[in-house]
Design a protein around this nucleic acid. Structure first.
Lengths: 229, 229
DNA sequence: GACGTATATTTCACTTATTGAAACTCCATT
DNA sequence: AATGGAGTTTCAATAAGTGAAATATACGTC
């Protein structure tokens, strides 16, 4: 059996994902979402609880635990995508004055903002790292789920959020889209032409991200040491 | 069985923690750190890999996967941030007697109180969850918008509100400041030395929030009030 | 280039540890 | 009282995980 199954672990991870995705789940809901019997879900959730990956609030519902935040933060520190994208985000803000985002697909037709830079206009789009966004009918969703867009970018006016226009381009190393770079603008101040100008910038940054020195085809170990201790 | 061990899952989570902590681990190193046989570690890591919790780089080493980043980011969503911070707020109030706040940046140079605990002194600072506060010339603003402060905290005397002194420290998982922890004190009863003492406490709680596995440094009556709001 | 050592991976017999139906207890509703 | 749903515990069946050993490969050294 060369297949790598560890059903127990897989199930536990599904539960963990469900809890984190929902923010708060009762045992019964978690069991339903993971398609497990209540007793099994309880046992696995308790294991997750014992290791700090989930915690129970006063009402007994399960919530993401400190450990998840901690590991996520650590992983973000090591995650090359984010550090690679940050200069691009900075440049986008600098050249457009608008808020810029890096997002990746998450689950159930949603994506997550992995990094962001706020624009400099006093009226600007604001969000936060970790925020979930729908992929349906959004510019980010279009580039994450669809093929390479014409011109390298997608403009969606008044998608999920009214009054804002989003302009996104895919990050597709090796042809596989793994993330999206986007700029979000209050619709009232953007013209068709301006949207195109920004779109070109975004597409250009997205393309440059994957070809520039240091980026490489594969994450460059910034931290080769492993564990010295 | 009172305790719920699920050895397999626990082991997998230990491996996950090891990989995230180190940033990059070879199979052998991971197995050693988790005190597992190579074959078991391999099997579990493959499960983690299959679910996106870890990935392998070109050299075959294991690294934190996107899924970890996603879940961590989701867990940092505002509502969970609140429940994560509440024990810290409780401890700050307990050890200082002063009101303590959790705030995040919102729009247009303002921040918002996401959670608070009132102090126990009869004369104390009072505010409310949801209140907007300026970021300019406030301790919270300084830590939210500026870089990591010297000593880990910022003291602002008589900032926006006359007669009060605010002491704030940033919450910066992975180097990105996402929120601030602060204690607000009537200026008349605080000395320079006391401000420093409180500052250390705030900075310490802010740091511990993101790195410490279980509860805080000091045993606190484990009576979590739920999330009413 | 041969040797020694380390890692990565597969196999397999052993049996341990996981499983889920069922039973039971608490609540809430009706 | 009766009903139903959630959370929890028990327990026998067995599915599932375990690790030593074998193999292949890679790397550094002499």
């Amino acid at each position: 059996m060369a297949e790598s199954s560890t059903r127990t672990v897989e199930r536990a991870l599904v539960l963990l994902g469900a809890v984190c995705g929902a923010g708060s789940l009762t045992l019964a809901d978690a069991a339903r979402e993971a398609d497990l019997s209540a007793s099994t879900a309880l046992r696995l959730l308790r294991t997750l609880e014992g290791t700090g990956f989930v915690r129970r609030d006063a009402l007994g519902a399960y919530r993401p635990g400190l450990r998840v935040v901690q590991l996520g933060a650590q992983a973000l520190g090591h995650e090359s995508l984010v550090s690679l994208a940050e200069p691009a985000l900075d440049r986008l803000v600098e050249r457009t004055g608008e808020s810029a985002y890096l997002s990746v697909p998450s689950h159930d037709g949603e994506g997550v903002y992995l990094a962001m830079r706020e624009g400099t206009h006093s009226v600007r789009h604001a969000s936060w790292v970790g925020r979930s966004i729908p992929l349906a009918q959004t510019a980010v969703g279009a580039v994450l789920t669809g093929g390479p867009p014409d011109g390298g970018f997608v403009v969606v006016r008044d998608g999920v959020e009214k009054d804002v226009t989003a302009i996104a381009a895919p990050l597709s190393p090796g042809g596989r889209t793994v993330a999206a770079l986007s700029v979000v603008v209050p619709s009232y101040r953007i013209t068709e032409a301006e949207a195109h100008r920004i779109g070109s910038l975004v597409a250009q940054e997205a393309a440059a991200l994957l070809t520039e020195p240091g980026a490489g085809a594969v994450p460059v170990p910034e931290d080769l040491t492993g564990e010295p201790a």
